[in-house]
């Protein structure tokens, strides 16, 4: 049984239907990349997984339990965490307050202090900046805070929405190394990323979304070798 199984997911913003049938699965400890053009429904898919957007049809199973339509607080409590697009830190709150907010779920609340201390050990830069308002950190440091905040609840799966967005190439490499490190500790990752080359290097498997539907799936190598993917996302021409 996969850790996360999404079947025929549909979602809408008012009259606008954003998802028309998204399906994918994530095994334990796996990195799965979701690839697609702007407006393909990647972020809406992540929002639906977390309960921010209510699906109009389809199912989402986490560890065999249906979670679609539940409140975000219930879903986070069950072990999903989100690193949102653009970091979305609480900019005026300190690094430590941001991290503490990550341990807000009931199962993590009592051990919030020790979890913060563990994050400082893992990311020493955060210990140095603990009192600093998160909004005053550099882009890379903010991304580390966003990732550390998501890890505070010790999720079984982390959803990452464009983690390299707005970062310098060198910092992007560091962030991808961090994602690999997190995965090596046993946390599954769903990676939505514009930087398709690096996302496919990191992922074991990938799904391609187009106009709110899953149109392709396979191992990362298969997806990377697909002529359509090469043409649309990797900037390469198909072989004659």
């Amino acid at each position: 049984m996969p850790l996360l199984a999404v079947r025929d997911l549909e979602a809408a913003y008012g009259d606008f239907k954003a998802l028309h049938g998204v399906s994918f699965a994530v095994e334990r400890g796996e990195i799965v990349s979701i690839v697609g053009a702007n407006g393909a429904g990647k972020t809406t898919t992540l929002k639906s997984l977390l309960g921010i957007v209510h699906p109009t049809a389809g199912t989402i199973e986490l560890d065999g339990t249906r979670i679609e339509g539940r409140r975000p607080s219930d879903i986070v409590e069950r072990g999903i965490a989100l690193v949102p697009e653009g970091r979305n830190l609480f900019r005026e709150m300190s690094v430590e307050e941001n991290l503490t907010m990550g341990a807000h779920v009931p199962r993590a609340r009592r051990s919030a202090r020790s979890r913060v201390a563990a994050m400082y050990e893992r990311f020493p830069i955060l210990a140095e900046r603990r009192r600093q308002p998160a909004g005053t950190l550099s882009g890379g440091q903010q991304q580390i805070v966003a990732i550390a905040r998501a890890l505070m609840s010790e999720p079984s799966i982390v959803l990452m929405d464009e983690p390299s967005l707005g970062l310098a190439p060198r910092i992007t490499l560091e962030v991808f190394a961090l994602i690999r490190q997190i995965n090596e500790r046993g946390t599954a990752v769903v990676l939505v990323e514009q930087n398709v080359v690096q996302a496919l290097e990191l992922a074991a498997r990938a799904y391609v979304l187009s106009e709110g539907k899953t149109v392709m799936q396979g191992s990362a190598a298969e997806i990377r070798a697909n002529p359509e993917v090469k043409r649309r996302f990797l900037g390469e021409n198909s072989p004659p």
């Binding site: 921010i52 409590e77 949102p84 609480f90 907010m101 990550g102 779920v105 905040r149």
Partner: peptide
């Protein structure tokens, strides 16, 4: 702390349970 978080970004606070 939760009030300050929702003052800054209600939706993000929601994603943190």
């Amino acid at each position: 702390l939760r009030l300050q978080a929702l003052r800054e970004d209600e939706q993000v606070a929601g994603t943190l349970a």
